[in-house]
């Protein structure tokens, strides 16, 4: 659905993303994995149109730059890494903004599904009780769930999530990730996400792209990418041994 072709992003002399290519196919949950500063978030910024890039990003064969912002938002929903509203909006108002692309422009309000979608998005993310709460009083996890509800209300075909587990406690990590897995089961959908927690990546990803210093080191099915050798190369440590050692503490 989404073809990333030789994408390069430069900030002055610094190359944040260096000639990265991969394809996000229907039904895939592709995990972008790699250490800090690998260029994962920058790549997502490029897809959102926030930074200019060389190379091309195609959505169903069309150059993403040729789509109007609202057109793009109806197809691709993006959850950013850091979200904090500047003013005391209510949760409901922020979630309703997710419907913007369905009736953009001057004379708005022509969106019959709006309230229904907002309700179900709040329900899915467990934010119904916070509907009228002031965003500035929410915890990090609640804020994250609000913006997740916004992206669900947006009802896109492709979900792009930058660190969706950010600030979420274990219960909501499980809840939200299962929710996304469920969402993905409908035909014509795909998920691309940046995930720091390798356990989450292994548990929910179908495919992965391993990045380091802006380059893609390995890509393919999750089991092919997350090999001890690949991880050793990127993280500079024996990840498998570390994970096993941590897990062993839980045995009775």
């Amino acid at each position: 659905m989404l073809d990333i072709g030789h994408v390069t992003v430069r900030y002055g002399n610094f190359t944040a993303v260096d000639d990265v290519s991969f394809t996000l196919g229907e039904g895939m949950w592709l995990m972008l994995v790699g250490p800090n500063g690998a260029g994962k978030s920058t790549l997502i910024e490029a897809v959102s149109g926030g930074v200019s890039y060389d190379g091309e990003i195609l959505y169903k064969g069309k150059d993403l730059r040729s789509l109007k912002p609202a057109q793009r938002a109806r197809e691709i929903g993006i959850l950013a890494q850091r979200n904090l509203p500047g003013y005391a909006f209510t949760v409901e108002e922020v979630v309703r903004l997710g419907r913007y692309a369905r009736s953009p422009g001057f004379f708005s309000g022509a969106d019959p599904e709006q309230e229904e979608r907002v309700d179900s998005a709040l329900e899915l993310t467990g934010m119904t009780a916070f509907r009228h709460a002031d965003m500035l009083t929410l915890s990090g996890g609640e804020t994250q769930r609000t913006f997740l509800a916004q992206v669900f209300a947006q009802d896109p075909r492709v979900l792009i999530l930058d660190e969706p587990a950010n600030h979420l406690d274990l219960k909501y990590q499980q809840h939200i990730f299962s929710l996304i897995q469920q969402w993905l089961k409908e035909p014509g959908r795909a998920v691309l996400s940046v995930v720091h927690d390798l356990n989450l990546a292994m548990r929910f990803g179908t495919h992965a792209v391993l990045m380091d210093h802006g380059k893609s080191i390995s890509k393919g099915a999750i089991s092919e990418v997350m090999t001890p050798e690949n991880l050793q190369q990127v993280y500079g440590m024996n990840v498998y041994e570390w994970m096993r050692e941590m897990l062993s503490r839980w045995q009775e």
Partner: peptide, 8 residues
């Protein structure tokens, strides 16, 4: 966020 929800 404005960009992500499709605002020009």
């Amino acid at each position: 966020n404005a960009r992500n929800i499709g605002v020009n």
